[in-house]
Amino acid sequence: MNRFLSNATNKIDAKSRVSVPSAFRSVLAQRNVQELYCFQDFVFPAISIGGPDLLERFERQIAAEDPFSPDANEMSLLIHGGGVFMKLDAEGRLMVTDFIRGFTGISDEVTFVGRADHFQLWQPQAFVAAQAQARGERKLAGKRS
């Protein structure tokens, strides 16, 4: 398996660290990801995390635009201005920094959510609410078809 799938909620320890689920660590290891690119998601109150390839994908999109265009500038503002690099510690834990807490509202627990080529950090109740809303919208869309 080389995709981030499923979700799991873990407690943040007294030193503001949280254990990344083993399935997610396995995907990172398979992809040989040493440094994590973390950015504030464009839609949800979540931090999206992947390898440097995720940042490179966004930078290719920016490079395809006129560098002075509003689209290129907005994308750079979001992916560069709203992004940081982080690393897991030797035990597979991630530091839950103010960058993460301030954007997500995370306090004492983190929900890790698989998104195929990357994963996200959510405040647990916000994830449950967003997932329920998405499920409801899919259900309504099915009835309209």
Rank of each mutant, 00 (worst) to 15 (best):
M1I: 13
R3Y: 13
R3A: 05
F4E: 04
L5A: 12
S6E: 09
A8N: 08
N10V: 04
I12M: 11
A14W: 10
S16V: 04
R17F: 15
V18R: 15
S19R: 10
V20E: 05
V20H: 14
V20M: 13
S22V: 10
A23T: 15
F24P: 09
R25Y: 13
R25Q: 10
S26P: 11
V27K: 05
L28R: 03
L28V: 12
R31V: 02
V33K: 11
E35Y: 03
Q40A: 04
F42W: 03
F44E: 09
F44Y: 00
A46R: 01
A46K: 04
I47P: 13
I49C: 13
G51M: 01
P52L: 05
R57K: 15
R57M: 11
E59Y: 06
R60T: 12
I62E: 01
A64M: 09
D66Y: 05
F68E: 03
F68R: 13
E74C: 14
S76G: 06
H80R: 01
G83Q: 04
F85T: 00
M86H: 07
D89P: 08
D89R: 12
E91K: 09
G92E: 00
R93C: 10
L94S: 08
L94A: 00
V96G: 00
D98V: 00
D98E: 01
I100T: 02
G102S: 15
F103T: 09
I106A: 13
S107A: 14
D108L: 15
E109T: 11
G114Y: 04
R115M: 07
A116D: 13
A116F: 14
H118E: 02
F119E: 02
Q120D: 07
L121P: 14
W122E: 07
P124Y: 04
A126I: 03
V128A: 00
V128D: 06
A129S: 05
A129V: 05
Q133E: 08
A134T: 02
A134I: 07
R138W: 03
A141G: 10
A141W: 05
A141R: 02
G142E: 10
R144V: 11
R144L: 10
